[in-house]
């Protein structure tokens, strides 16, 4: 049998090893992607990464960021709403992917709130809303109490004033408080009083905050969207019904906002509920897979948007640009 096993292994060796893609499309993409990444400031569009709301589904953003970062995707500004603001704050802070993945993997429903059996009964019987103070503490600890100005990348997050219905874009001051306000689910958490406003989750009014990224100067926006598939859900209680209403509202809001982004990555996490903490690993993986599948298309889209800005440089001289970007790696597109 051992001889047969060796033969089987030898036959297995005959399988086709993936050959490098040397087609004109792949090589030209790889070459131009390098040019885009080496481009000095102003010679390519300012790139904004937008992370949508989506409660626990939003951990898929971490997977998306992992793929973009490994591919050397240049991200200049970041904007997020709700869970997107939590992930966005970590990313803008320069938190390592490993740490972000670790935090996301250990997220639980009670990670950012004082939810417990007793508090839920109080919520349902006595209208006593929960507190999202734990979110603020967690962010403050991870970010070491930084302000927006101290982050590595410009960052903005969204909240809503529950009394006026206005969308409030935070881009200065204390990050932890702003992020807490951004993911302060109405109907579950008590509104956060901050800067003379009563703030709840920004996802209610701005599900995919493309406008916030534009406000930070983004000229080309890539958005990671973790929208719910509300048609798959059958609410069974007050919390489910509330989640359903928020998801439906988010879906309507995002219809228009999707059109404002230049490129969308949509991890298929729509069936993961607001409290499905056991499906977090799945959401993370789906983020990676969805981003990887769209990576070439995203690179192509940014290249095409960059050519009009790069052409004047190329017109001055056909010689290479003088200041290469620090990441020297090849695009995985041509080295699959």
């Amino acid at each position: 049998m051992r001889r047969l096993a060796v033969l089987a292994l030898a036959l297995l060796a005959a399988r086709a090893s993936a050959a490098p893609d040397l087609s004109a499309d792949a090589l030209l993409r790889d070459h131009l992607w390098r040019e885009v990444r080496r481009a000095p400031a102003g010679a390519r569009p300012k790139v904004g990464l937008v992370l949508s709301a989506g409660s626990l589904r939003g951990v898929a953003h971490v997977g998306v960021i992992q793929v973009l970062q490994t591919a050397g995707f240049p991200i200049d500004v970041v904007a997020g709403t709700s869970m997107g603001s939590v992930v966005g704050a970590f990313y803008a802070n320069g938190t390592t992917l490993k740490r972000m993945w670790e935090i996301a993997s250990h997220l639980r429903v009670d990670s950012g709130s004082n939810v417990s059996g007793r508090h839920l009964i109080s919520l349902i019987l006595f209208d006593r809303l929960l507190s999202s103070e734990k979110t603020e503490k967690m962010i403050r600890t991870e970010l070491k109490g930084k302000t927006f100005e101290q982050l590595q990348k410009p960052f903005a997050c969204l909240s809503m004033d529950v009394y006026t219905g206005e969308a409030i874009i935070f881009r200065d001051g204390d990050v932890a408080t702003a992020v807490r306000a951004s993911m302060n689910l109405p109907g579950i958490f008590e509104p956060l009083e901050y800067r003379h406003r009563f703030l709840v989750d920004g996802g209610v009014v701005d599900y995919i905050p493309v406008d916030a990224a534009r406000l930070l100067g983004a000229q080309w926006v890539i958005a990671s969207v973790t929208e719910a598939d509300f048609t798959a859900s059958r609410p069974k209680n007050v919390l489910d019904a509330l989640e359903q209403v928020i998801d439906i509202r988010g879906a309507y809001l995002s219809r228009e906002q999707r059109k404002q982004a230049n490129f969308l990555i949509e991890p298929p996490v729509g069936d993961i509920g607001m409290f499905d903490e056991q499906r977090i690993p799945e959401a993370l993986e789906k983020g990676v897979i969805a981003a990887a599948q769209r990576l070439n298309a995203a690179e192509e889209s940014l290249i095409l948007a960059s050519i009009p800005k790069l052409a004047p440089l190329w017109s001055r001289s056909a010689a290479p640009m003088p200041a290469p970007a620090p990441t020297p790696a090849p695009s995985p597109a041509a080295a699959p």
């Binding site: 993409r29 095409l304 009009p308 052409a311």
Partner: peptide
């Protein structure tokens, strides 16, 4: 349309603009 064709159009338009 292939990426090469779209990139060629973008550069052609940029060349004409230049």
């Amino acid at each position: 349309a292939s990426f090469s064709a779209r990139a060629a159009r973008a550069l052609r338009d940029a060349a004409l603009a230049a």
